[in-house]
Design a protein around this nucleic acid. Structure first.
Lengths: 334, 334
DNA sequence: CTGAAAGCGCTTACAG
DNA sequence: CTGAAAGCGCTTACAG
């Protein structure tokens, strides 16, 4: 039998109101009273009924997070950052998956009902269209976007255009003129503004240097290890393949690196490779990359969330730095 | 203003009891009535108050998961598997971190209060001692353990002894006699029964082959990329280093692989390396390993949880298969 | 098939 | 500093 607040009140010889106040550390409770109540609660193994306190007006002290996948490096880092901040603040984290269009739709239709369940929602790579955004906002939830800019929603992200521009420019600066890009064909996310921005940045860097862009240098494959393998296979079939490739994720780049080695393509002798993320294994692999601090992105987003809506930061889009890290996988063409 | 069940009842011209029954798809509601209620609820944007329905006796339809880390490959796979099953069943997932002893203690002291918040708890690498286990059980939560055997708690795991035995035997069978093991020094988890079992399996395989075990072949380092680097550094300093090493995780093995390359140690020529897990990058890296289906571990555990306590499987310890995968990183010594 | 009513266990003004 | 009481919004026997 669970002990209720009434049990504690009776045992401690006070009213339930006093128990409630004492246990939640509110003012205007005599120290002796509080001590007695706390001791009694402890003895009875009392803890408030979650539903009851919610109904009576308590906060859920729970934040939701929705992301497409949980089995990839990026999400795991975001999650770790978020979790760290939330748990330190005594908040819980509930996670939702929205990978397929169907799941996204299901999630959106639930969004409204989450209002009594969570205090806020962190969205990761959700890329809502106008209608979907409207539904999210109408849910009444506090929203913070991670890794993507969403109109009317505070967000933390990076400048994908600029990062891609600099990655490409690095390849240009060390002398490459035939430069490919891989990862645009992210099958399951039909339109990712993030990837679109990176492609734009890549194109701008080429144009800036007076280099022309070749359609066949736009390599297919998803942002995964096997996607990287696929991209390299595609490249290997070309008569005049690029001498450098910008992979839009490190996982993909490492898949590419491995496949290149397998096919006898020397990196960076025959082919320079630059990735994106600074994955845990990037340094060990000697992979040049654009480093983003994903875990920090998560923890900062969680902090923003916790300071909402009190210090309503008024729809701020914060940009996190991205750093070019040159390692062994990029070198001048020979 | 949130719409309440009363609003719906009034608008639909029925009692709140009928609304409640109609919306939850219970029997004994006339089709026409149900349709009218559903339509009204829809129109008013009604969704039940979570706290109210909990208090009135509803289930939380939420499962908790506690794990030490969320930024490692293993946990991300478990999580993805769990999430997949739970969301398909209409359940939510709330995650708790328990990495440091302090966090574990905090979590345990909360466990009891989670009873009104979640319907069950999945525990990953928690390794409770007798007292801690007692507290978990007394919390009254439905428990399922993942990756570890916990007395009196249904679990899904692998046979770590056997897997390590076979990994080591593989190295022996291809001709190695000086065989090291790396990863035992998992700093933050003072005593991991999982790693202890693997060390036992390693020792048993050596003993079985009449090989003697050298203390200096027990390499230090955590199960991470940098731990692998550290282990290889330690090995490189030895006068008569092992010719093969069993790394207790693929992430560590890949760190070791990279460091070996950096130091000019040829793999598998000078050194054979076998890992554990079959990480996404293991195949690309050509890493021989002991494959465990971590994602499946998660999804099966979630299924077990959902079938509790109805079909109380009566404290069953299920073992998942582990498969030796031989790739390029292991070869006979030269 | 439907409704009136009790009850779930808290929190929060309102008094004192 | 403390208590009595209303109220939060549901679900579930119990009647009919």
């Amino acid at each position: 039998m669970r002990a209720t607040i009434e049990d504690v009140a009776r045992e401690a010889g006070v009213s339930v109101a006093t128990v409630s106040r004492a246990l939640r550390g509110m003012d205007h409770v005599a120290e002796v009273t509080r001590d007695r109540v706390v001791a009694t609660a402890q003895r009875l193994g009392y803890s408030p009924h979650f539903g009851a306190s919610l109904l009576a007006g308590g906060a859920t002290r729970t934040i939701g997070l929705v992301a497409p996948y949980y089995d990839i490096w990026y999400t795991s880092q975001v999650l770790a950052g978020v979790e760290e901040v939330l748990s330190a603040a005594g908040h819980d984290l509930v996670i939702y998956a929205a990978d397929t269009p169907l799941n996204r739709e299901q999630f959106l239709s639930r969004a409204h009902s989450l209002q009594t369940r969570i205090d806020g929602l962190l969205i990761v790579d959700f890329f809502p269209d106008v209608g979907q955004l409207q539904r999210l906002i109408e849910s009444g939830l506090n929203l913070v976007a991670i890794g993507e800019d969403v109109a009317r929603v505070p967000s933390l992200s990076i400048d994908n255009f600029d990062a891609a521009f600099r990655a490409t420019r690095h390849l240009i600066e060390i002398g490459h003129t035939r430069i490919g890009i891989a990862g645009g064909q992210q099958v399951s996310l039909d339109t990712s503004p993030v990837l679109a921005s990176r492609i734009d940045g890549y194109q701008a860097a080429l144009a800036d240097a007076g280099l022309k862009e070749l359609a066949e240098y736009r390599l297919t494959g998803m942002l995964t290890v096997s996607g990287g393998r696929q991209a390299i296979d595609e490249l290997a079939d070309q008569l005049e393949p690029p001498t450098a490739v910008f992979f839009m994720s490190d996982e993909m780049a490492m898949g590419g690196l491995a496949q290149a080695r397998r096919l006898g393509i020397d990196v960076p002798g025959d082919l320079s490779i630059i990735g994106f993320d600074d994955h845990d294994l990037a340094e060990a692999t000697g992979l040049s990359t654009m480093r983003q601090r994903v875990r920090r992105l998560g923890s900062l987003a969680a902090e923003r969330m916790l300071s909402l809506p009190d210090h309503d930061s008024g729809r701020v889009h914060e940009l996190m730095p991205v750093e070019l890290v040159v390692r062994d996988s990029t070198a001048p063409p020979r």
